[in-house]
Design a protein around this nucleic acid. Structure first.
Lengths: 139, 139
DNA sequence: AAAAGCCTCATACTTTAGTACCAAAAACGG
DNA sequence: CCGTTTTTGGTACTAAAGTATGAGGCTTTT
């Protein structure tokens, strides 16, 4: 900047000495500072940043309970006990094993199972397991 | 541009008339054309675009049969018929339904099922289903 | 308070699943 | 060709699953 001012002074002095036409002098000044402005603009202007978001699909191993389908689960309208029994079934447990795990009698498990099948619109525990896994309401 | 030149002429005339100091006049000219240069640069220059690509990860659940575990399947050493029966079981079919689908008698299905359970080291079809899905040898 | 829904358990019964054992035809490898 | 495995199917039996029905206790809603 200081250098530029010196140059300006020199140009001014030179033109006065040589007694050139003032229009020419002004033209040079205008041209010079126009170029200076353009240069400044190029230097100072921050580049426009355009952010492009690229969606990248990454396969995920589908962890056990990551994607429990709450929506489908609610549609079935299972009671909490019925859902517990269904979860045990999906683990491959027999009625006796489920009864032992939940501290219930086999009769109770059978009752829950029957009600469960009606609500799920299936006719056997294997169909219930298949459907529950297909709808992702059990791991 | 023509308008600007007229303005310049007017400024020049005014300053001459009022007999201002030439440095002030030159300063105004310089400032004006610097601004003009900056404005021109901003108007005419094609915007420099720096594209930033941001990868957005979208979890995609692995499809069921994408990763049929051939290794685990071979370990079990199932015969082709036994594997067919296992696949039908995993679909929730009963022995009678499997027999109908494979054009076999229920006795044959039971035989295959029993041999299957021994090879898979399970004690019921529900356990077989659970294990086959856990090892990803059925969809 | 009455009704509804859920949880529990029981009995009695039918159906299905599963085991054990046997046996014959077919397929397959050495 | 012979031995092995697979596939098929049978009978007889046991175990488990599933259905139907009832009933008492509990909580929530109306």
């Amino acid at each position: 900047m200081a250098l530029l001012l010196l140059l300006l002074k020199w140009l001014q002095w030179k033109f006065l000495i040589t007694d050139q036409a003032e229009e020419v002098y002004t033209g040079f000044i205008a041209l010079f500072f126009t170029v200076l402005g353009i240069w400044l603009a190029f230097r100072l202007r921050s580049p426009e940043v355009r952010t492009v978001i690229v969606e990248k699909e990454i396969p995920v191993p589908l962890t056990a309970d990551a994607g429990i389908n709450e929506t489908e689960l609610q549609k079935l309208n299972l009671s909490s006990r019925e859902y517990e029994v269904l979860q045990c079934m999906s683990r491959g447990l027999s009625n006796a094993e489920i009864a032992a795990e939940l501290f219930l009698s086999v009769s109770t498990i059978k009752t829950h199972a029957s009600n469960l099948f009606v609500k799920m619109d299936v006719k056997s525990r294997t169909q219930a397991i298949e459907k529950s896994k297909r709808l992702r309401i059990t791991p």
